[in-house]
Design a protein around this nucleic acid. Structure first.
Lengths: 192, 192
DNA sequence: CAAGGGAGTAGACACTGTCTACCGCAAGGG
DNA sequence: CCCTTGCGGTAGACAGTGTCTACTCCCTTG
């Protein structure tokens, strides 16, 4: 069996996840990851032909983690669809603000814009879940459009909040009002 | 006069703006900018002690350019505040999707998160204009909160659209429906 | 037992940002 | 008039990066 061989592949991603959460995204150099994994700097090349592919694999872990958190928090799906969207948005914002480095990595331009890395596909499950919930919460509208706009809103809130732009403009010290404003705006105010 | 001396400072930023719009953000290495400006790689250091400060100056140009486009398109301020917000949003989205590299640079984490570079302050004018217009369009709500949420929404749409995530989820090939959805959501549907 | 290939090493290469020693040259003071 | 000072820029060094390639083990297979 190639257990030892394929073990390095997963270990590199593990080290990367660990590294990005503790040190930030700028610490994710290929050589540093290899160093922490205890191999030479050329070793990752066998599993990840380029640095971006390794970064993409690490970011994919982030999307999987986020999807798992969403599924875990949503549980068996009790509560109105509207409330489920709210909790999903809360989970996402918490994730983004807690795991800043990972969130930054997940939405890096050079990773997401590439057609070969396939990171966009990794983000589809959690996006699809949101579209589904929005469709059940508001059957009267184009669910994909509203979900897309809401998703963009949540993402923008997460980003602008992390570097303090929204604190400056809104004067708030808590994201919750912004989250509620976005939910109310896209889903309507009723049945809070 | 130190015309020739201070000329390099502006020329470096000029070259950077030119470079980021034509070649993309990854082409903005310190040495490449110096090369295209016709000076040695150590020359920029006299005006920009670090690479990030030069990048920040280039990004500041982007915010100034965006603010100028907004002011020019808005003109003398005819039309309802609601329509003015709509045109401002359109101007922003057009700018972001046309000048992708510059837009990416303007919202880079390592630039915006820094407290010493002061890039957040450079973005305040255009933000403030939006807050002001929203306040006049909807005097009944907390303008700063709604404007912040709307701003986050526009930014998110710009970002997600550039790498095709929203095309995947919404199936659209034009941003306009998303822009309208965001405007309707945050400002209400009436008086289109 | 011999051949082959997967897995990882080690060194080179070009490139990057930062630092430091140096140089030319214009302006100002004795 | 000469001499010094300092500004604007040069050039080289240094550590670090991603990629490429030659090489070495060692396990598997024939």
């Amino acid at each position: 069996m190639t257990e030892r061989g394929a073990g390095l592949r997963a270990r590199l991603v593990d080290v990367g996840v660990e590294l990005v959460t503790t040190e930030g995204v700028q610490a994710l150099s290929l050589r540093e990851i290899a160093r922490r994994a205890g191999v030479s700097h050329g070793a990752p090349r066998r599993y990840f032909p380029t640095h971006l592919e390794l970064l993409s694999a690490i970011a994919r872990r982030g999307f999987e983690d986020l999807a798992a958190r969403g599924a875990a928090t949503l549980g068996d799906g009790t509560g109105s669809p509207r409330r489920q969207v709210a909790t999903l948005g809360r989970v996402y914002l918490d994730f983004a603000l807690t795991h800043r480095g990972m969130h930054e990595l997940m939405f890096r331009h050079d990773l997401l814009e590439s057609d070969t890395l396939g990171l966009r596909d990794a983000s589809l499950p959690v996006f699809g879940l949101l579209v589904d919930l929005v469709g059940r919460a508001r059957p009267d509208v184009d669910a994909r459009l509203v979900a897309g706009a809401l998703l963009a809103n949540l993402y923008g809130i997460a980003q602008l909040w992390t570097w303090g732009s929204l604190q400056l403009t809104t004067g708030a010290d808590d994201v919750t009002p912004l989250l509620d404003a976005a939910l109310d705006a896209h889903l309507g105010r009723e049945d809070r």
